[in-house]
């Protein structure tokens, strides 16, 4: 066995071990503490868990690319809300009245296009000004959220289209539509990051930007494409979620960016870029959703949930550091 294989294995496997631990813990603790008499690991419960993971999970795949690239995107929550409004509102636009149910693909396309556009704006600013993505997307987070409020004030935007609701509630092979979307996105992004030139360049840029520039990789356009991808995924997430719920509040999607970043980091993506895995992010998303659900199952309230997740995040980052050091031979800091 090569040196470091064990630690690599532990690192890759850690998130799945953690998920297993959560499952066991909540099943056992739930038996004593739960108010409901249903088991935690009930099949329906687990299927719902996948479905509920989808909105954050779909965007987290995009965030994985962005963070591997050495950037961050704080505006995804606002993008999510804005695309939801475009979706629901455009369904009722008079010019599409004659389309019947054909308005659905048109509205979907409009919402997705909005997402891509918002992402492109972020990417373009990062590329052309050279300002750190953190600052740029902090600005656009506020800006895009402002647009959301300008649209309808404090009022929710609502429209239920029953064809859409039916579509969203379908279960194919037992899995909900949203779950299928999450799985498909995960697969596509995994393929992108491990098999394609674009994906490998994303790693190279995040790892050593100067080397990438010297090697002739066009870093600016590359990063812009990634911002467009995450914009698209934020929109896709909105499209999937709001097809079913049919109503968007101007505050929707707030703090999404933090949940998403937490999931990506739990999955082992380096905050400084250059390393990370889409599959582990998937694990990170499930782990967080399990935690929220599990803590709810044993009767904890939202503030407790947040506190626990915060503590776990710090613990995981610490553990990760420990695993990354190969015993006494490693340099100390």
């Amino acid at each position: 066995m090569q040196a470091g294989t064990l630690s690599t294995f532990l690192k890759r496997g850690a998130i799945w071990g953690f998920i297993l631990f959560e499952l066991i813990f909540f099943s056992v603790a739930g038996a004593f503490l739960s108010l409901s008499d249903k088991a935690f690991m009930d099949l329906d419960n687990m299927l719902r868990l996948f479905k509920q993971s989808a909105p954050i999970g779909i965007i987290a795949m995009g965030m994985t690319i962005i963070m591997i690239n050495g950037n961050i995107d704080l505006s995804v929550g606002a993008t999510f809300a804005l695309c939801a409004i475009v979706l629901l509102d455009s369904l009722t636009w008079p010019i599409f009245a004659g389309l019947g149910d054909w308005v659905i693909p048109v509205s979907w396309a409009l919402a997705l296009l909005t997402g891509v556009l918002l992402g492109a704006i972020n990417g373009l600013i990062v590329w052309k000004t050279g300002v750190d993505a953190f600052i740029v997307t902090l600005g656009s987070m506020l800006g895009y959220r402002g647009l959301v409020f300008m649209y309808n004030g404090e009022q929710p935007t609502s429209h239920l289209n029953w064809t859409l609701v039916d579509f969203a509630e379908t279960q194919f092979l037992g899995l909900h539509t949203a779950t299928w979307f999450l799985l498909a996105v995960t697969l596509v992004i995994w393929f992108l990051m491990t098999r394609t030139i674009h994906g490998r360049n994303a790693y190279a840029i995040g790892d050593n930007r100067e080397a990438a520039v010297n090697a002739g990789i066009r870093v600016g356009p590359h990063m812009m494409i990634n911002f467009m991808i995450i914009g698209f995924l934020a929109a896709l997430s909105a499209v999937v979620f709001y097809s079913e719920s049919g109503s968007v509040n101007p505050n929707d999607g707030e703090l999404y960016e933090l949940w998403i970043i937490t999931a990506v980091v739990l999955g082992g993506t380096k905050l400084t870029g250059g390393a990370g895995s889409v599959i582990s992010t998937f694990g990170g998303v499930l782990a967080i959703q399990l935690l929220r659900k599990g803590l709810g199952h044993i009767g904890a309230d939202t503030s407790t949930v947040n506190l626990v997740i915060g503590l776990i995040l710090i613990a995981v980052l610490y553990l990760d550091r420990q695993l990354n050091r190969k015993g006494a031979e490693e340099l100390k800091i």
Binding site: I197, R200, Y203, A204, D207, N208, A211, A215, G274
Partner: peptide, 26 residues
């Protein structure tokens, strides 16, 4: 040195010009 540590030797040697298959695959 101008290398990306997290990538393989091959990817570093051909950094910026990885051989391409269909669909932008490496």
């Amino acid at each position: 040195l101008s290398l990306a540590d997290e990538l393989s030797v091959a990817e570093n040697v051909y950094l910026g010009e990885l051989p391409r298959k269909s669909f932008g695959r490496v």
